[in-house]
Design a protein around this nucleic acid. Sequence first.
DNA 1: CACAATACTTGCGGTTCCGAACTATGTCTG
DNA 2: CAGACATAGTTCGGAACCGCAAGTATTGTG
Lengths: 191, 191
Amino acid sequence: MSGHHTIAETEKAVQAKLGAVPLHREQMAAVSNIHRAATAIRQHLENSVLRTSDLTWTGFVVLWVVWIWGEMETRYVAEEAGISKGTLTGVAKTLQSRGLLERLGHPTDGRLAVLRLTPEGEELMADLFPKFNEEEVFVSDPLESSEAQSLAEMLRRMVTHLDANGEQRRLDLRGDTPLPPRRSGRRAKHG
Amino acid sequence: MSGHHTIAETEKAVQAKLGAVPLHREQMAAVSNIHRAATAIRQHLENSVLRTSDLTWTGFVVLWVVWIWGEMETRYVAEEAGISKGTLTGVAKTLQSRGLLERLGHPTDGRLAVLRLTPEGEELMADLFPKFNEEEVFVSDPLESSEAQSLAEMLRRMVTHLDANGEQRRLDLRGDTPLPPRRSGRRAKHG
DNA sequence: CACAATACTTGCGGTTCCGAACTATGTCTG
DNA sequence: CAGACATAGTTCGGAACCGCAAGTATTGTG
Protein backbone atom coordinates (compact mmCIF):
# COMPACT_ATOMS: atom_id res chain seq x y z
CA MET A 1 0.00 0.00 0.00
CA SER A 2 1.06 3.56 0.67
CA GLY A 3 0.72 4.17 -2.97
CA HIS A 4 -0.49 6.33 -5.69
CA HIS A 5 -4.00 7.54 -4.93
CA THR A 6 -5.87 8.04 -1.75
CA ILE A 7 -9.53 7.18 -1.53
CA ALA A 8 -10.32 10.88 -1.65
CA GLU A 9 -8.44 11.25 -4.91
CA THR A 10 -10.22 8.28 -6.36
CA GLU A 11 -13.57 9.74 -5.46
CA LYS A 12 -12.55 12.91 -7.22
CA ALA A 13 -11.61 10.99 -10.35
CA VAL A 14 -14.97 9.26 -10.24
CA GLN A 15 -16.62 12.64 -10.09
CA ALA A 16 -14.62 13.75 -13.12
CA LYS A 17 -15.36 10.60 -15.10
CA LEU A 18 -18.97 10.23 -14.08
CA GLY A 19 -19.97 13.79 -13.37
CA ALA A 20 -22.74 13.67 -15.91
CA VAL A 21 -24.08 10.24 -15.06
CA PRO A 22 -26.75 10.12 -12.39
CA LEU A 23 -25.35 7.91 -9.68
CA HIS A 24 -25.95 7.07 -6.09
CA ARG A 25 -22.64 8.13 -4.74
CA GLU A 26 -23.09 7.50 -1.08
CA GLN A 27 -23.97 3.88 -1.62
CA MET A 28 -21.18 3.54 -4.14
CA ALA A 29 -18.65 4.89 -1.69
CA ALA A 30 -19.97 2.72 1.11
CA VAL A 31 -19.80 -0.48 -0.90
CA SER A 32 -16.45 0.21 -2.46
CA ASN A 33 -14.93 1.18 0.85
CA ILE A 34 -16.18 -2.03 2.41
CA HIS A 35 -14.14 -3.91 -0.13
CA ARG A 36 -11.12 -1.69 0.16
CA ALA A 37 -11.16 -2.05 3.90
CA ALA A 38 -11.71 -5.79 3.76
CA THR A 39 -8.76 -6.23 1.41
CA ALA A 40 -6.44 -4.01 3.41
CA ILE A 41 -7.39 -5.62 6.70
CA ARG A 42 -7.07 -9.10 5.33
CA GLN A 43 -3.65 -8.33 3.96
CA HIS A 44 -2.52 -6.92 7.26
CA LEU A 45 -3.77 -9.89 9.23
CA GLU A 46 -2.26 -12.36 6.80
CA ASN A 47 1.12 -10.72 6.90
CA SER A 48 1.20 -10.22 10.63
CA VAL A 49 -0.35 -13.03 12.64
CA LEU A 50 -1.39 -15.60 10.05
CA ARG A 51 1.81 -15.85 8.08
CA THR A 52 3.85 -16.86 11.09
CA SER A 53 1.65 -19.94 11.50
CA ASP A 54 1.60 -20.53 7.77
CA LEU A 55 -2.15 -20.24 7.66
CA THR A 56 -4.07 -18.80 4.76
CA TRP A 57 -6.97 -16.49 5.40
CA THR A 58 -9.50 -19.12 4.43
CA GLY A 59 -7.77 -21.76 6.47
CA PHE A 60 -7.91 -19.51 9.49
CA VAL A 61 -11.56 -18.65 8.98
CA VAL A 62 -12.46 -22.31 8.77
CA LEU A 63 -10.54 -23.07 11.93
CA TRP A 64 -12.15 -20.12 13.63
CA VAL A 65 -15.67 -21.20 12.74
CA VAL A 66 -15.10 -24.73 13.95
CA TRP A 67 -13.37 -23.45 17.05
CA ILE A 68 -16.23 -21.18 18.00
CA TRP A 69 -18.97 -23.65 17.34
CA GLY A 70 -17.21 -26.82 18.38
CA GLU A 71 -18.14 -29.82 16.26
CA MET A 72 -19.92 -28.60 13.18
CA GLU A 73 -21.39 -30.18 10.08
CA THR A 74 -19.44 -29.35 6.97
CA ARG A 75 -22.26 -27.67 5.10
CA TYR A 76 -22.65 -25.12 7.88
CA VAL A 77 -18.92 -24.60 8.12
CA ALA A 78 -18.79 -23.74 4.43
CA GLU A 79 -21.64 -21.33 4.78
CA GLU A 80 -20.28 -19.58 7.85
CA ALA A 81 -16.86 -19.34 6.28
CA GLY A 82 -18.36 -17.92 3.11
CA ILE A 83 -16.96 -20.56 0.76
CA SER A 84 -18.51 -23.31 -1.31
CA LYS A 85 -18.71 -26.89 -0.12
CA GLY A 86 -16.35 -28.00 -2.81
CA THR A 87 -13.74 -25.54 -1.67
CA LEU A 88 -14.24 -26.58 1.92
CA THR A 89 -13.45 -30.18 1.07
CA GLY A 90 -10.05 -29.08 -0.19
CA VAL A 91 -9.32 -26.62 2.58
CA ALA A 92 -10.35 -29.13 5.23
CA LYS A 93 -8.00 -31.67 3.68
CA THR A 94 -5.13 -29.23 3.91
CA LEU A 95 -5.91 -28.51 7.54
CA GLN A 96 -6.28 -32.20 8.32
CA SER A 97 -2.91 -32.91 6.76
CA ARG A 98 -1.45 -30.33 9.09
CA GLY A 99 -3.03 -32.07 12.05
CA LEU A 100 -5.23 -29.15 13.03
CA LEU A 101 -8.62 -30.47 12.09
CA GLU A 102 -10.36 -33.81 12.12
CA ARG A 103 -13.29 -35.19 10.28
CA LEU A 104 -15.86 -37.40 11.95
CA GLY A 105 -18.87 -39.24 10.68
CA HIS A 106 -22.17 -38.31 12.20
CA PRO A 107 -23.31 -40.95 14.71
CA THR A 108 -26.91 -41.22 13.53
CA ASP A 109 -26.98 -39.76 10.04
CA GLY A 110 -24.39 -41.44 7.90
CA ARG A 111 -24.53 -38.79 5.21
CA LEU A 112 -23.15 -36.08 7.39
CA ALA A 113 -19.55 -35.22 8.09
CA VAL A 114 -18.57 -33.24 11.12
CA LEU A 115 -15.45 -31.18 11.62
CA ARG A 116 -13.68 -30.67 14.91
CA LEU A 117 -10.34 -29.22 15.95
CA THR A 118 -7.65 -31.58 17.10
CA PRO A 119 -5.93 -30.77 20.39
CA GLU A 120 -3.16 -29.17 18.32
CA GLY A 121 -5.77 -27.11 16.54
CA GLU A 122 -7.30 -26.00 19.83
CA GLU A 123 -3.90 -25.07 21.12
CA LEU A 124 -3.05 -23.14 18.00
CA MET A 125 -6.26 -21.14 18.13
CA ALA A 126 -5.92 -20.46 21.83
CA ASP A 127 -2.50 -19.06 21.11
CA LEU A 128 -3.31 -17.34 17.84
CA PHE A 129 -6.62 -15.72 18.48
CA PRO A 130 -5.50 -13.21 21.11
CA LYS A 131 -2.82 -12.04 18.68
CA PHE A 132 -5.37 -11.85 15.93
CA ASN A 133 -7.65 -9.83 18.15
CA GLU A 134 -4.80 -7.46 18.98
CA GLU A 135 -4.50 -6.69 15.29
CA GLU A 136 -8.23 -6.22 15.02
CA VAL A 137 -7.79 -3.59 17.68
CA PHE A 138 -4.92 -2.07 15.72
CA VAL A 139 -6.87 -1.78 12.49
CA SER A 140 -9.81 -0.31 14.41
CA ASP A 141 -7.59 2.25 16.05
CA PRO A 142 -9.14 5.22 14.22
CA LEU A 143 -12.59 4.33 15.54
CA GLU A 144 -14.11 5.30 18.83
CA SER A 145 -15.60 2.40 20.68
CA SER A 146 -19.08 3.65 19.90
CA GLU A 147 -18.17 4.05 16.26
CA ALA A 148 -16.92 0.50 16.03
CA GLN A 149 -20.23 -0.64 17.46
CA SER A 150 -22.20 1.43 15.04
CA LEU A 151 -20.08 0.23 12.12
CA ALA A 152 -20.62 -3.39 13.10
CA GLU A 153 -24.31 -2.78 13.48
CA MET A 154 -24.74 -1.17 10.07
CA LEU A 155 -22.85 -3.97 8.39
CA ARG A 156 -24.92 -6.50 10.25
CA ARG A 157 -28.02 -4.89 8.85
CA MET A 158 -26.65 -5.12 5.34
CA VAL A 159 -25.79 -8.79 5.71
CA THR A 160 -29.17 -9.57 7.20
CA HIS A 161 -30.87 -7.74 4.39
CA LEU A 162 -28.94 -9.63 1.72
CA ASP A 163 -29.54 -12.83 3.54
CA ALA A 164 -33.27 -12.21 3.54
CA ASN A 165 -33.82 -10.54 0.20
CA GLY A 166 -30.81 -11.15 -2.02
CA GLU A 167 -31.99 -14.27 -3.71
CA GLN A 168 -35.40 -12.84 -4.52
CA ARG A 169 -33.75 -9.72 -5.87
CA ARG A 170 -31.53 -11.75 -8.16
CA LEU A 171 -34.52 -13.69 -9.37
CA ASP A 172 -36.43 -10.50 -10.09
CA LEU A 173 -33.47 -9.01 -11.90
CA ARG A 174 -32.99 -11.75 -14.38
CA GLY A 175 -36.69 -12.26 -14.90
CA ASP A 176 -37.28 -15.33 -17.04
CA THR A 177 -33.87 -15.46 -18.67
CA PRO A 178 -31.94 -18.17 -16.89
CA LEU A 179 -28.43 -17.50 -15.64
CA PRO A 180 -25.93 -18.00 -18.41
CA PRO A 181 -23.53 -20.85 -17.70
CA ARG A 182 -20.06 -19.93 -16.66
CA ARG A 183 -17.34 -19.94 -19.23
CA SER A 184 -15.61 -22.68 -17.32
CA GLY A 185 -16.84 -25.71 -15.45
CA ARG A 186 -17.51 -29.35 -15.94
CA ARG A 187 -19.54 -30.24 -18.99
CA ALA A 188 -22.33 -32.73 -19.24
CA LYS A 189 -20.90 -36.10 -20.09
CA HIS A 190 -22.56 -36.27 -23.44
CA GLY A 191 -24.48 -33.70 -25.46
CA MET B 1 -27.21 -17.89 2.15
CA SER B 2 -30.22 -17.82 4.44
CA GLY B 3 -28.55 -20.47 6.44
CA HIS B 4 -27.88 -21.80 9.80
CA HIS B 5 -26.71 -19.03 12.06
CA THR B 6 -27.31 -15.34 12.08
CA ILE B 7 -24.56 -12.94 13.03
CA ALA B 8 -26.26 -12.43 16.37
CA GLU B 9 -26.16 -16.15 17.07
CA THR B 10 -22.52 -16.29 16.13
CA GLU B 11 -21.70 -13.49 18.49
CA LYS B 12 -23.49 -15.40 21.21
CA ALA B 13 -21.44 -18.50 20.51
CA VAL B 14 -18.29 -16.41 20.66
CA GLN B 15 -19.38 -15.17 24.05
CA ALA B 16 -19.91 -18.75 25.19
CA LYS B 17 -16.59 -19.97 23.85
CA LEU B 18 -14.54 -16.98 24.84
CA GLY B 19 -16.44 -15.67 27.83
CA ALA B 20 -13.45 -16.02 30.07
CA VAL B 21 -10.85 -14.67 27.66
CA PRO B 22 -10.29 -10.95 27.75
CA LEU B 23 -11.08 -9.71 24.29
CA HIS B 24 -11.85 -6.53 22.48
CA ARG B 25 -15.27 -7.45 21.26
CA GLU B 26 -16.32 -4.29 19.53
CA GLN B 27 -13.30 -4.32 17.28
CA MET B 28 -13.70 -8.02 16.71
CA ALA B 29 -17.30 -7.58 15.63
CA ALA B 30 -16.44 -4.64 13.42
CA VAL B 31 -13.66 -6.45 11.60
CA SER B 32 -15.50 -9.70 11.21
CA ASN B 33 -18.62 -7.97 9.95
CA ILE B 34 -16.58 -6.09 7.39
CA HIS B 35 -15.54 -9.41 5.93
CA ARG B 36 -18.96 -10.95 6.16
CA ALA B 37 -20.47 -7.97 4.44
CA ALA B 38 -17.78 -7.88 1.78
CA THR B 39 -18.31 -11.55 0.98
CA ALA B 40 -22.08 -11.29 0.88
CA ILE B 41 -22.03 -8.16 -1.24
CA ARG B 42 -19.48 -9.56 -3.61
CA GLN B 43 -21.50 -12.70 -4.05
CA HIS B 44 -24.62 -10.72 -4.76
CA LEU B 45 -22.94 -8.50 -7.31
CA GLU B 46 -21.24 -11.42 -9.01
CA ASN B 47 -24.46 -13.36 -9.32
CA SER B 48 -26.55 -10.45 -10.46
CA VAL B 49 -24.80 -7.98 -12.75
CA LEU B 50 -21.36 -9.48 -13.28
CA ARG B 51 -22.37 -12.99 -14.18
CA THR B 52 -24.43 -11.86 -17.14
CA SER B 53 -21.32 -10.34 -18.70
CA ASP B 54 -19.18 -13.29 -17.65
CA LEU B 55 -16.93 -11.07 -15.61
CA THR B 56 -15.27 -12.11 -12.40
CA TRP B 57 -15.12 -9.73 -9.48
CA THR B 58 -11.45 -9.04 -9.94
CA GLY B 59 -11.84 -8.60 -13.65
CA PHE B 60 -14.53 -6.04 -13.07
CA VAL B 61 -12.52 -4.17 -10.46
CA VAL B 62 -9.56 -3.93 -12.82
CA LEU B 63 -11.77 -2.65 -15.62
CA TRP B 64 -13.35 -0.18 -13.23
CA VAL B 65 -10.03 1.23 -12.07
CA VAL B 66 -8.74 1.67 -15.60
CA TRP B 67 -12.07 3.13 -16.68
CA ILE B 68 -12.07 5.74 -13.94
CA TRP B 69 -8.48 6.78 -14.36
CA GLY B 70 -8.08 6.36 -18.09
CA GLU B 71 -4.66 5.12 -19.12
CA MET B 72 -2.84 3.83 -16.10
CA GLU B 73 0.46 2.15 -15.37
CA THR B 74 0.04 -1.44 -14.33
CA ARG B 75 1.70 -1.09 -10.95
CA TYR B 76 -0.90 1.49 -9.93
CA VAL B 77 -3.71 -0.56 -11.34
CA ALA B 78 -2.66 -3.51 -9.20
CA GLU B 79 -2.47 -1.36 -6.13
CA GLU B 80 -5.82 0.32 -6.66
CA ALA B 81 -7.46 -3.00 -7.43
CA GLY B 82 -5.98 -4.51 -4.29
CA ILE B 83 -4.15 -7.37 -6.02
CA SER B 84 -0.50 -8.20 -6.56
CA LYS B 85 1.21 -7.27 -9.78
CA GLY B 86 1.69 -10.92 -10.59
CA THR B 87 -2.03 -11.46 -10.39
CA LEU B 88 -2.67 -8.42 -12.51
CA THR B 89 -0.55 -9.81 -15.32
CA GLY B 90 -2.86 -12.80 -15.55
CA VAL B 91 -6.09 -10.88 -15.13
CA ALA B 92 -5.05 -8.33 -17.72
CA LYS B 93 -4.28 -11.14 -20.13
CA THR B 94 -7.74 -12.56 -19.67
CA LEU B 95 -9.33 -9.18 -20.25
CA GLN B 96 -7.16 -8.53 -23.28
CA SER B 97 -8.15 -11.85 -24.78
CA ARG B 98 -11.77 -10.77 -24.37
CA GLY B 99 -11.05 -7.55 -26.21
CA LEU B 100 -11.89 -5.29 -23.29
CA LEU B 101 -8.45 -4.03 -22.37
CA GLU B 102 -5.27 -3.12 -24.18
CA ARG B 103 -1.71 -2.93 -23.10
CA LEU B 104 0.66 -0.22 -24.31
CA GLY B 105 4.33 0.28 -23.79
CA HIS B 106 5.43 3.51 -22.20
CA PRO B 107 6.98 5.88 -24.78
CA THR B 108 10.02 6.92 -22.78
CA ASP B 109 10.47 4.35 -20.01
CA GLY B 110 10.75 0.87 -21.47
CA ARG B 111 10.05 -0.82 -18.17
CA LEU B 112 6.55 0.50 -17.87
CA ALA B 113 3.35 -0.87 -19.29
CA VAL B 114 0.13 1.09 -19.49
CA LEU B 115 -3.41 -0.27 -19.54
CA ARG B 116 -6.36 1.28 -21.32
CA LEU B 117 -9.89 0.15 -22.15
CA THR B 118 -10.71 -0.71 -25.72
CA PRO B 119 -13.83 0.89 -27.21
CA GLU B 120 -15.64 -2.39 -26.42
CA GLY B 121 -14.43 -2.10 -22.86
CA GLU B 122 -15.65 1.48 -22.60
CA GLU B 123 -18.99 0.46 -23.97
CA LEU B 124 -19.30 -2.44 -21.59
CA MET B 125 -18.54 -0.28 -18.57
CA ALA B 126 -20.90 2.45 -19.67
CA ASP B 127 -23.62 -0.16 -19.88
CA LEU B 128 -22.65 -2.18 -16.84
CA PHE B 129 -21.82 0.40 -14.25
CA PRO B 130 -25.30 1.87 -13.83
CA LYS B 131 -26.61 -1.64 -13.21
CA PHE B 132 -23.81 -2.26 -10.77
CA ASN B 133 -24.61 0.96 -8.98
CA GLU B 134 -28.27 -0.04 -8.76
CA GLU B 135 -27.24 -3.13 -6.83
CA GLU B 136 -25.01 -1.06 -4.61
CA VAL B 137 -28.14 0.85 -3.77
CA PHE B 138 -29.97 -2.39 -3.14
CA VAL B 139 -27.40 -3.75 -0.73
CA SER B 140 -27.30 -0.39 1.05
CA ASP B 141 -31.05 -0.37 1.41
CA PRO B 142 -31.03 -0.77 5.19
CA LEU B 143 -28.89 2.35 5.58
CA GLU B 144 -30.05 5.91 5.77
CA SER B 145 -28.18 8.18 3.43
CA SER B 146 -26.35 9.75 6.35
CA GLU B 147 -25.47 6.33 7.69
CA ALA B 148 -24.00 5.25 4.38
CA GLN B 149 -21.84 8.35 4.46
CA SER B 150 -20.72 7.72 7.97
CA LEU B 151 -20.00 4.08 7.18
CA ALA B 152 -17.90 5.05 4.20
CA GLU B 153 -16.07 7.61 6.24
CA MET B 154 -15.20 5.24 9.05
CA LEU B 155 -13.92 2.65 6.61
CA ARG B 156 -11.90 5.30 4.84
CA ARG B 157 -10.23 6.14 8.11
CA MET B 158 -9.34 2.52 8.68
CA VAL B 159 -7.84 2.17 5.22
CA THR B 160 -5.88 5.37 5.60
CA HIS B 161 -4.59 4.25 8.94
CA LEU B 162 -3.44 0.90 7.61
CA ASP B 163 -1.91 2.59 4.63
CA ALA B 164 0.09 4.88 6.87
CA ASN B 165 0.97 2.61 9.75
CA GLY B 166 0.44 -0.99 8.71
CA GLU B 167 3.89 -1.73 7.48
CA GLN B 168 5.59 -0.27 10.51
CA ARG B 169 3.26 -2.23 12.74
CA ARG B 170 4.13 -5.46 10.99
CA LEU B 171 7.80 -4.68 11.30
CA ASP B 172 7.44 -4.00 15.01
CA LEU B 173 5.47 -7.16 15.52
CA ARG B 174 7.94 -9.55 14.05
CA GLY B 175 10.94 -7.77 15.53
CA ASP B 176 14.12 -9.23 14.11
CA THR B 177 12.73 -12.60 13.09
CA PRO B 178 12.20 -12.47 9.34
CA LEU B 179 8.91 -13.54 7.81
CA PRO B 180 8.86 -17.28 7.26
CA PRO B 181 8.55 -18.28 3.63
CA ARG B 182 5.19 -19.41 2.42
CA ARG B 183 4.49 -23.07 2.09
CA SER B 184 3.87 -22.55 -1.56
CA GLY B 185 5.70 -20.40 -4.04
CA ARG B 186 8.59 -20.47 -6.39
CA ARG B 187 11.84 -21.98 -5.15
CA ALA B 188 15.33 -20.92 -5.98
CA LYS B 189 16.53 -22.64 -9.11
CA HIS B 190 19.25 -24.44 -7.25
CA GLY B 191 19.63 -25.16 -3.52
C1' DC C 1 -38.94 -51.99 -1.78
C1' DA C 2 -38.64 -48.67 -5.46
C1' DC C 3 -37.65 -43.90 -5.61
C1' DA C 4 -36.85 -39.37 -4.28
C1' DA C 5 -34.20 -36.37 -1.49
C1' DT C 6 -30.02 -35.18 0.98
C1' DA C 7 -24.96 -34.72 2.03
C1' DC C 8 -20.72 -35.00 0.75
C1' DT C 9 -16.81 -35.97 -2.59
C1' DT C 10 -14.59 -35.84 -6.90
C1' DG C 11 -13.15 -33.85 -10.98
C1' DC C 12 -13.22 -30.51 -14.70
C1' DG C 13 -12.02 -26.19 -16.63
C1' DG C 14 -11.13 -22.23 -15.73
C1' DT C 15 -9.67 -17.82 -12.75
C1' DT C 16 -7.50 -15.78 -9.16
C1' DC C 17 -4.03 -15.21 -5.89
C1' DC C 18 0.54 -14.53 -3.52
C1' DG C 19 5.30 -13.92 -3.43
C1' DA C 20 9.84 -15.19 -4.78
C1' DA C 21 12.70 -15.75 -8.72
C1' DC C 22 13.79 -14.01 -12.97
C1' DT C 23 14.35 -10.65 -16.94
C1' DA C 24 14.76 -6.31 -18.84
C1' DT C 25 15.41 -1.72 -18.40
C1' DG C 26 16.82 2.51 -16.28
C1' DT C 27 19.78 5.23 -13.00
C1' DC C 28 23.42 6.27 -10.12
C1' DT C 29 28.32 6.44 -9.00
C1' DG C 30 33.13 6.02 -9.05
C1' DC D 1 31.33 4.26 -19.08
C1' DA D 2 31.31 0.06 -16.46
C1' DG D 3 29.58 -2.06 -12.60
C1' DA D 4 26.24 -1.77 -8.86
C1' DC D 5 21.83 -0.96 -7.59
C1' DA D 6 17.01 0.03 -8.29
C1' DT D 7 12.58 -0.54 -10.50
C1' DA D 8 8.75 -2.64 -13.45
C1' DG D 9 6.88 -6.32 -15.14
C1' DT D 10 6.57 -11.47 -16.12
C1' DT D 11 6.95 -16.22 -14.89
C1' DC D 12 6.11 -19.90 -12.05
C1' DG D 13 4.96 -23.11 -8.00
C1' DG D 14 1.48 -24.17 -5.08
C1' DA D 15 -2.76 -23.29 -3.21
C1' DA D 16 -7.44 -21.46 -3.12
C1' DC D 17 -11.68 -20.85 -5.41
C1' DC D 18 -16.15 -21.28 -8.03
C1' DG D 19 -19.96 -23.65 -10.24
C1' DC D 20 -21.46 -27.39 -12.03
C1' DA D 21 -21.98 -32.35 -13.19
C1' DA D 22 -21.53 -36.68 -11.83
C1' DG D 23 -20.75 -40.30 -8.42
C1' DT D 24 -21.34 -42.55 -3.74
C1' DA D 25 -23.68 -43.39 0.22
C1' DT D 26 -27.44 -42.86 3.27
C1' DT D 27 -31.95 -41.58 4.75
C1' DG D 28 -36.82 -40.75 4.27
C1' DT D 29 -41.22 -42.00 2.06
C1' DG D 30 -45.13 -43.83 -0.35
